[in-house]
């Protein structure tokens, strides 16, 4: 386990070092790429709670990513046009404050997680995969056909939202915000995995009947895990929309769900830092291969296929050895 810890520390410091180095060399684009890695990694960390700890193969996490994105888009667009979101029965104004947007994104994701989870968790296995996928499509088509917030074209925000005491327009400061949130997300997952709840959840993945027999409801455990998972991914969605100052139905698309899952697999299933490595590799590949060939998705697909078929511990598994429980 110490070797994996070392690898984890290297990964985290590597990400921070890349951004700080780019800052020192005045390369804002590299900082933006590092920010993107941090945000996408956070989305993966969220999914990893459901997938890695709970064994819930959700192919619909774009729902939360998109809800987070639209929470930011809707609140900020109302603030930017000085029009209240709601006038009756009471007035709700838009906002440009990140903490408020984050809170709304997390709460909205929790609510969506509760509803989707309550329905989807009635099933398991391949049904669960297909149903979460279908719920993702439902949100996708709704976002496309609902014209109030841009419909198919999405919503643009002129200025990035603010955080008290910081200048979020400065790339390195925005990176640090995202990096701290990623670290918090990782810390939360690590604590969760060691808590009584996390242990029960892990046992429910390995043998649901036994968990049931000792008087714990696997359904409830999974529902809470699914909600927590969605909340973290929702937060990442709000950050991602802020990074691009743009939100569109693409955030809800099933490819987004697939990509978030790809981060976890490239890094290694059941590894705390799997999503961070996976997101970093994904962004680097996108950048390097995307420059070489317009058709870089072929290489990404081939790499993913090789990892799934032959390197089941993912990249961390290759580097840190395979002593993690993988069932």
């Amino acid at each position: 386990m110490t070797r994996e810890r070392l690898v984890n520390a290297v990964i985290l410091l590597g990400l921070l070092g890349t951004a700080l180095g780019a800052w020192a060399m005045d390369a804002p684009y590299t900082i933006t790429l590092a920010t993107k890695v941090a945000i996408l990694a956070l989305a993966g960390v969220g999914l990893n709670i459901a997938l890695g700890l709970g064994g819930l193969v959700s192919l619909g996490h774009a729902v939360f990513f998109g809800i987070g994105g639209y929470a930011m888009g809707i609140l900020a667009s109302h603030a930017q046009s000085y029009s209240p979101i709601l006038t009756t029965p009471f007035v709700i104004e838009g906002t440009k404050s990140m903490p408020v947007i984050w809170l709304v994104a997390i709460l909205a994701s929790a609510l969506a997680g509760l509803v989707i989870g309550a329905l989807s968790l009635r099933t398991s296995g391949v049904y669960f995969i297909m149903i979460t996928l279908a719920f993702g499509q439902m949100f996708f088509y709704f976002a496309i056909s609902w014209p109030a917030y841009g419909g198919e074209d999405g919503l643009s925000i002129y200025v990035r939202n603010g955080f008290p005491g910081l200048n979020t327009l400065d790339p390195i400061q925005f990176f640090l915000i995202c990096f701290v949130l990623l670290a918090l997300g990782l810390g939360l997952t690590a604590r969760l995995a060691r808590s009584a709840f996390g242990l029960a959840l892990t046992s429910a993945r390995q043998n649901a009947a036994r968990v049931q027999a000792v008087g714990i409801s696997p359904y409830r455990l999974r529902l809470v895990a699914f909600m927590l998972s969605g909340m973290v991914t929702g937060l990442a969605g709000a950050l991602y929309a802020d990074l691009n100052r743009f939100v569109s139905p693409t955030m809800f698309s099933w490819q987004t769900s697939g990509e978030i899952m790809v981060f976890i697999i490239l890094g290694g299933v059941g590894r705390l830092f799997g999503p961070v490595v996976g997101a970093a590799v994904f962004i680097v590949l996108e950048h390097v291969l995307g420059g070489l060939s317009e058709y870089w998705h072929i290489y990404l697909g081939a790499l993913l296929l090789l990892v799934v078929l032959f390197a089941r511990g993912g990249i961390i598994g290759l580097v840190a050895g395979r002593e993690v429980a993988h069932d």
Partner: peptide, 12 residues
């Protein structure tokens, strides 16, 4: 694994 491998096939 099936989901991911077939997702990779879609990309290819």
């Amino acid at each position: 694994d099936q989901v991911l491998a077939t997702f990779a096939l879609i990309l290819i």
